[in-house]
Design a binder for these strands. Structure first.
Lengths: 142, 142
DNA sequence: GTATATTAATTGATGCATCAATCATTGACC
DNA sequence: GGTCAATGATTGATGCATCAATTAATATAC
């Protein structure tokens, strides 16, 4: 029958619950959503980048990226300008204000993650990372 | 600085990406969302249960549960009736049709999960489950 | 050189989750 | 017994993600 009580099922259930619980708590603790912080982090590392490139890196829908950037622009955290060579492209970059703010967010994030992985040894961490990576590879194959 | 390149950060990033990628793929593969399937699974095991109890078990917002059940009722998969003893409570149960359908969903789910955990040994699975459980405990403490 | 295809960005429609407010029912206290 | 608090369920408002369609600019083919 489909009692679904195997260990596999439990792992899946944990993964699901984990994301369901973590997402909102992350946002409350850090004051920003994971998606948005990822966008900012990417911008920080890239200095200036086209929306298209950014979208590919963070792997979020085009539309979502546009909307995030619009809101970030309203908050004066990013600046956008059309590419002079090709007007279809839009370059995005952080403002000074944005760079300052992101530092605080990242620190909050770091604190959050440390709490989540509390009690994990170095060895366990790398084992876990390895496993998660393998799972992700499996998913990408589908 | 806040380069955030530590292993901890990578684990968090993986967890985040994982849920972002898994959720929609799960839905496409199985034809149902994880939340909704969890509700159905709970109903299957409980036979008859109040919405309140169901909500506590699946740990989804009250409003979301109400809306799921409404749609499931429209699809003739569940039946709801007011408790005679206390009219505030609503008992929910699967229809025969619902029970049949859930079997197919569960099989799809099982197949999906097996693919995700492809290449994991028994030992690795229990290690992973253990780690995920510990992370969840850490989250609950926050 | 003009029509067609491609690509980036945006907008609209939809689905789902949450929170807050409301409604209905029951229980408790005076 | 009547008022008030507590509880379950529902509804409305909001936020965020996706897909589909549209717009604007560029590249390609004839």
């Amino acid at each position: 029958m489909f009692k679904c009580s195997k260990e596999e099922e439990l792992i899946a259930a944990r993964l699901f619950e984990l994301s369901k619980q973590t997402m909102p708590k992350f946002e409350r603790c850090t004051g920003i959503s994971q998606s948005r912080l990822e966008i900012l982090r990417e911008l920080f590392e890239a200095e200036e980048i086209t929306q298209r490139e950014l979208q590919k890196k963070v792997n979020i829908d085009h539309a979502a990226v546009t909307r995030h950037l619009k809101q970030l622009e309203e908050k004066s955290m990013v600046i956008r300008r059309k590419s002079p060579e090709d007007n279809r492209f839009t370059y995005v970059s952080l403002t000074e204000e944005g760079k300052t703010k992101i530092a605080a967010y990242c620190e909050e994030k770091q604190r959050f993650i440390s709490k989540i992985l509390n009690g994990f040894s170095e060895l366990e961490r790398s084992t876990l990372l390895n496993m998660l990576t393998r799972i992700q590879e499996n998913i990408e194959k589908m």
